[in-house]
Amino acid sequence: MAAQNRRDFLKTMGIIGVTAAGFSTSTTKAQEKFKLSEDRIGVLVDTTVCIGCRNCEWACKKVHDLPAGSLEEYNDRSVFENKRRPDEHALTVVNEFENPDNVLLPVDVKVQCMHCEEPACVSACIVNAYTKHPEGPVTWDSDKCIGCRYCMVACPWQIPAFEYDKAIQPNIMKCDFCYDRQQEGKLPACVEICPEEALIFGKRRDLIEIARQKIKREPDRYVDHILGENEVGGTSWLYLAGQNFSKLDFPKLGTDPAPGVTEKIQHGIFAYFIPPISLYALLGGIMWINRGKSKSKEV
C-alpha cells in the first residue's frame, strides 16, 4: 500500500518535473480545440491605405450604444498628437505614425481586439464568460462575468477594458466583431463605413491569400509580414504595413498561443485528478502508519 502510494507520489513529482523542465512548443491546432470553421471570417487591415478619417470609430460607437457625437467631430486630426488605446468608451481607435519614406503621408493604424485563434481571455476567464465562436469572433458574456479582470492580465494585445467608474454591473468592454450584426448578415460597422476599403472583410484563408498577393505585387510598398497570420497562434484580424510593426506600436509576440504553457501546467496538475488523489492517498497512508506513535506518549 505504502509502496504503491510512493510510486504515485513519484509520478506526481514526475509530472511536475516534466511540466517544469520540458514545454515542447508543439500544440494542438486551434481548429481542433475550438472546432473553428474552415470558412471562419476575418478582416485584413491595410495600413498603407488607411487615411485616418476615423469614421470607423464613430460607426463602432453608434452600433454599440456608446456616446458617439456627430461624424464631423471625427475630422479633428489633433487627437493624433497622442497615442490612444481602445478603452471602455471606444472599442476601436486609430493612431497615426510618421512615415519614414514620405513625411506628408503619415501611417494610420486602426486598433481593436484581434480575435485570436487561441485566445488567452477565453482560456483565462474564471467563469467561462468568453466564447471563441467557430466563425471567428471572440465575445464576452455579461451574465457570467464577475469582474475579476484576469482577461486583462492575460491578453497579449492588452485589449479588454473595464468600466472602473461603475459601482454596479461594470462591463468588460472590447470589440465583439459585431457578432450580432454578422448573425443578421450585416458587415461589421467599421468595415461597412470604411470609405477607402482599408478594411477587407472575408474568409480568413482568402484574406491571407490576398495579403500574400499584395505583398508579391508591390514588394516596395509592404514589408513581407502579415501580422496576425502566426502571432500567438494566429488572429482573425490581419495587418499589412509598409514598415516594421514594432514601429507601429504592436507588441512583439511569438507564434506560440498565449494560453499554451498555462494550459499544459493546468492539465498536468489535474490529469484526470490523478495527482491530487494520489497525494491524498499518500498523505492518508503516512498518517495511518504514524497513527500509533502518539498513544505511547500520552498519559
Binding site: C125, I126, V127, K144, I146, G147, I265, Q266
Partner: peptide, 24 residues
C-alpha cells in the same frame, strides 16, 4: 472588494473553466 461584480463571487461554483488557473 476587488471584484468588479462582487455580488457574483459565487459564479465560479456554477460556471466552470478547467483551463483557468484562477478558477482552480
Amino acid at each position: 472588494v476587488d471584484l468588479g461584480r462582487y455580488y457574483f463571487i459565487w459564479h465560479p461554483l456554477i460556471y466552470w473553466n478547467g483551463s483557468s488557473p484562477l478558477f482552480e
